[in-house]
Each structure stands twice: as C-alpha cells, then as structure tokens.
Amino acid sequence: MSSVMSSPSHAVTQAKKALGARLREIRLAARLTGRNLGDLAGWHSSKVSRIEHGRQTPSENDIGAWCRHCEADDQAGDLVASLRTIDEMYVEWRRMQRTGLQRLQQAAIPLYERTHCFRVYEPSLILGLFQTAEYALALMRAVVAFRQIPDDSAQAVEARMQRQKILDSGGRRCAVILEEAALRTRIGDAEVMAAQLGHLLSVASRPNVSLGIIPIRDRVMWPPNGFWIFDEERVLVETLSAELAVTQPREIALYAKAFAELAELAVYGAATRRLITSVIAALDT
C-alpha cells in the first residue's frame, strides 16, 4: 500500500489497469470476445483491448454500455465510482498551491461541512483540525519555503482556524490515530510544541473526539502514509507531490480496515494523557 501511495502517477496507472482488468473479467464471464462486444456497442474491437489493458480510459457511457451488453448492470455503479476515482485521485500540489496556501485551505471547506464522521490517521504531524495557530504557521512557512510559492501563511492559518470550527457544529465526530512520532516531531520551537501538545490534551477531552496514540514499539502493522476518511464518501491521501482522492467503495473499505487495525495498536484515555505529558516534559531536556 505504501509503495503505491508514494508515487501518484504510478497509482493512477495502476488504477486504470485495475479497472480494465475488472471490465475484462465481466466480458469473459459473459462469454463475449472483444470483437463481439465491440460489434454490440458499435466500437472497433481495438477500443475494447485498449480499455482492458489500461491504455484508454472509458467514459461513464462506455461503462454503462459494457455492463449492459455483458448483462452485468448491477456492477455498473461500482465501476463508475472507480472511474471517478481515476479522474479525481491525482491533483498536483503545485497547481493547487501556485497562488499560495489560503485557497487550498478554503477549498476543503465544503467537504468538511458535509462530513459527519472523520477518521484520521497521521504518522508524523498533528492534524490540521487540532493545530494551534503558532504550530500551523511554523508548518506552513516550511511548506512555502520548500515549494517556493507566494507566502500567504498568515491568511492560510486564519482559514485553517476557521475550518476547525466545523467540529463544534452539526453533531460531528472525529476519531484520530496519531503515531507517537507525531508528538515528538518538533514543528517550531519548544514553546510552540509545548503549547500545541497542551492544546492536544484539551481537544482530546471533547466528547465528540476520540484520540488514540500508537506508542513507539514493536508492531505487527507498518505505518502507512497519513490518510483522512470522510464518512463513506472518500479518502484523501497526501504525498509529497500530490493529493490522492479515493472514492471507489472497495478501496474506501480497505482504508477503513487499515484504520481499524491501527486503532487496535493505539492507547487511549489516561494512557494517552500520560504519553503527551511525558513528551511535553521532555521538551525541556
């Protein structure tokens, strides 16, 4: 899983091939040759081959016709969801960030507003919904410097702070799993980190928030890239060069399974508070 996430262009290619393979299975189950299907749909047989090998992306109408002629209409919805995943899953950060970071923060608000349950796994950073303004500013300034983009860090932080208010409305729930490394990765100076970790303790006490922390120890599941699950609608995965949007139900279920297994590794409640407090104390050493 982690190797695909680390290469967005590879992920898109593999998604096209996976969709093509599923369509081929449907055709074979219907006992149709590529030429048979092409004749029924009014396509050249080479189009069938290109789609099945991931060299051509089908349209939603193509998928509808494919399933209809193969008497597999019940699979059309899932396949269309896969197609939309391919269309949405690769969004280049440089294009999204070319005018700075504020627009990126604001663009996510509609998705946050229609989400009732957030499930978030972060291996190395405190998630944006739980960040202090000072922590967020130090992080965004680092992003600006690395990306060499216009510096609107202050405005982006303000937008992020506004977005955090979403958690206080609409009966929303937020289940978060952090790696211990996220507590120990210093963003800003010791004062910024101490305030951030103190704020994390406060946020964790909210009735609509569940915070688990996976201690640094031997484990049976490797740390994957961070990911956010928005209800059952989509999963967002951030990589160095892109954001992957996953909307195919079977893939969302895979992330849900990963979240559940990671949650089994985490500690909660008093154990979480002790761990955060110990990290705060270690800032002075």
Score class of each variant (00 low, 15 high):
A18K: 09
T247R: 15
D168L: 13
E180Y: 10
H44E: 13
A138E: 15
G171L: 05
P110Q: 06
E71G: 00
H69I: 00
R274S: 12
L139Y: 11
G38V: 08
L40S: 04
E88W: 06
L275C: 09
D78Y: 01
S202W: 00
E238L: 07
E191F: 02
L254I: 03
Y268S: 04
G170W: 07
D78C: 02
H53N: 15
R141E: 15
I26H: 01
A15I: 03
R273P: 01
G77K: 13
Q56W: 05
I51Q: 04
K16S: 09
P150A: 05
T13A: 14
E191T: 14
D218Q: 09
G226N: 01
A281D: 15
I280D: 04
G54L: 07
Q131A: 08
E60Y: 00
R114H: 11
V237T: 06
A11G: 07
L183Q: 06
R234A: 14
V120F: 02
R173Y: 09
I86D: 06
I229F: 04
F230G: 01
Y135E: 06
L40D: 00
T247K: 10
S49H: 11
G269T: 07
N225R: 11
E71L: 07
K165I: 01
P223Y: 05
P110E: 06
G42T: 03
D152V: 06
I26K: 01
Q148W: 00
V220E: 11
G42K: 04
M221W: 11
D73C: 04
A30G: 06
S45E: 15
W66H: 03
A156E: 09
E232I: 00
V192G: 02
